[in-house]
Nucleic acid binder design. Structure first.
Lengths: 118, 118
DNA sequence: CCATCAACTGAGCATATGTTCATGTATACT
DNA sequence: AGTATACATGAACATATGCTCAGTTGATGG
């Protein structure tokens, strides 16, 4: 038989903690946006793009060469990164040159890499 | 007609940059793991779990109450977070109590939140 | 003006992901 | 032992995601 509620029966297990934590939590909107931000970092192609931009500004074409992928695929991913304000771009003739938005992004990448290499 | 190669025709657009960056890039393995790490942060439910654990250790039951979700759903997500060594746990009777692994995780969450609130 | 190239975009498709449901496991209590 | 509770897990299903393909836009140069 299935449970009516798949949560704890005995009121709260640690109700004091739960209530206190609940009062300190960020808004759901902020946390949703935070998840969207990390989601943008959470793809092989996109981290490789971002990691490359750590060293130098690059155009779509450069990135396609560097990652050995179609420029269409790169462009699609850059769109995601632009959407989350992780990269910015400037036009240079036919080329569009991308850079990381700010130091936050760099810090996130570095902290993440440090964690991976522990 | 479709292009034979959907990359730039004129050798490299900025071949010096591309070559130099290529030599500085982390291994694909590391970057793949980095993407997996961020992917684990990249879900509403999981960031809410992590954000909650920022304030206090909590058992599965607490988290289910706090996020108003089934303990099964929480458990599945905690599995992902354990897999990436983002949370650790200890048993306390029938309960399993979760905490963030280390300060790296906290830093990542804080940097991310700061970016979201710019 | 026309051709070429870098970049962007929408549709389509195969794969990945998150939740529910049902069941399994471990611990505590009588 | 038997029951109840907390947690974990596998299957199934609906949705999300990343790439390719085809076509479009905008800039450059003959």
């Amino acid at each position: 038989m299935s449970n009516v509620k798949d949560t704890c029966q005995v009121e709260f297990v640690h109700s004091d903690n739960v209530n206190q934590v609940n009062s300190m939590m960020e808004s759901d909107d902020n946390l949703f946006e935070l998840a969207e931000l990390f989601k943008a970092f959470g793809d092989s192609t996109r981290v490789r793009i971002l990691h490359a931009l750590t060293f130098s500004e690059l155009c779509v074409c450069d990135l396609a060469q560097l990652l050995n992928m179609s420029s269409s695929a790169i462009s699609h991913q850059l769109r995601v990164l632009r959407g989350q304000k992780i990269v910015k771009y400037r036009k240079d003739g036919k080329n569009v040159i991308y850079t990381l938005v700010d130091a936050h992004v760099l810090t996130l990448l570095e902290q993440g890499l440090q964690h991976v290499k522990e």
